[in-house]
Design a protein around this nucleic acid. Structure first.
Lengths: 213, 213
DNA sequence: GCCTTCAGAATTATCTATAATCTGACACCA
DNA sequence: TGGTGTCAGATTATAGATAATTCTGAAGGC
């Protein structure tokens, strides 16, 4: 049995999905013994999975006292948005000189998928793919990792707020970003991107809960 | 024996120091079995320590193939500097309204310690303390954690380049930041901070290796 | 000389057992 | 009644054993 993923990685991936989707609620305890039993594994790779979840901001470990799903307070929504608003344009600025036609093509396909999405999970995955595709050519691994983790956090907020509010966003910013990049205007692409993910006061954007993923 | 730190945390802290100081060179293998023997421990908490080191950007784990000290390529120096240049002002902007006289006092003391430092390690710790003290009141934990990790990376670069080049920096930016904050001018404080940690081309700043910690 | 295969050694990942710490119930005392 | 101490059971952390995977060098074939 030659698996690509270690058991710890597999458990981490499964728990990640449940946390992000909201199935595992913020603050709820993650019992290493119970999860080990569920996965028919020893508790040691479960602990390793918890370490990884914590590193991605999805869990909070309290040494000797257990691990919990990370809280996702409303106040931190702004924190996530503002970090993205400074980090994503930074990545795009470095990525832009390396963006090929192929990258733009893949980004456009991701955006098309987002526009066609009929449920919020499909939309979020396509949206995340759009962003990642454009930023990846920057080649700055630490920065990309930070952005990835912020996207996970964003997804949690998105899914947590989906009830009653979600409509397929009719969002032109992605197209504007692509158009600017095709025109070689990375400054405009960066500023549209920054505005696109920027925190805005809730009063003005009730349906999106204060930011745009 | 009631210890505050778990063994994994202790091992992580010790290895951290060695990585940051340069004693453990970039790319060098971290052997779980050897380290376990050195600490007279099982390899399991060593693995947990490796997970934590990786989360902080100090190690790179290759599943089933071992763990290495994270590379610190010169190219990534710029990445670290630029991330700091956008994240630290963001944190300071949110911290400024919460900064008390006590915070400013502690920051001034840290700066004094930095100015009086006679070796680079003392200076680095005081410098880091200065930054952290000012930014902590923002209360944004994810952001502060990111900045902390960037400071660890900065320290690695600083110590790696210390030979022959290090002089006690005669740096007025810290004082300018404090003065602006005392005057309630957070915009100036933020822009000085951004400039202070900003990436500059190596040609113009040979002695500091391209950025200012 | 180069490439492929394979066995054995080395190393990492997980398991099971044990040690350490935490939690909550209960008893006792002022 | 409220506060404190004790202790059993629950839970987490680590040790040592075992299983799984990778690495390395030797042998054989072309």
């Amino acid at each position: 049995m030659k698996k690509e993923m270690t058991l710890a990685a597999e458990i981490c991936a499964r728990l990640s999905e449940r946390i992000i989707s909201g199935e595992l609620a913020a603050g709820s305890p993650l019992r290493q013994d119970h999860i080990a039993a569920e996965f028919k594994a020893s508790h040691v790779p479960v602990r390793e999975a918890f370490r990884e979840l914590e590193a991605r901001g999805l869990a909070q470990r309290l040494p000797r006292r257990g691990t919990r799903v990370a809280e996702a307070p409303h106040a931190a929504l702004r924190e996530v948005a503002e970090m993205r608003a400074v980090l994503e344009p930074l990545a795009l600025r470095h990525a832009a000189p390396q963006i090929t036609g192929s990258v733009l093509q893949r980004a456009a396909e991701a955006n098309q998928a987002a526009e066609n999405a009929e449920d919020i999970y499909t939309w979020e995955e396509a949206n995340r793919r759009f962003h990642r595709t454009l930023l990846e050519p920057c080649g700055m691994e630490r920065l990309l990792r930070s952005i990835d983790d912020l996207h996970l956090a964003s997804a949690r907020y998105l899914f947590a707020g989906k009830s009653r509010e979600w409509q397929s966003p009719n969002d032109r910013d992605h197209r504007a970003i692509l158009a600017a990049l095709r025109a070689g205007d990375s400054a405009t692409a960066c500023s549209v991107l920054a505005r696109h993910v920027q925190w805005t006061p809730p009063r003005l954007r009730l349906q999106a809960g204060g930011f745009r993923p």
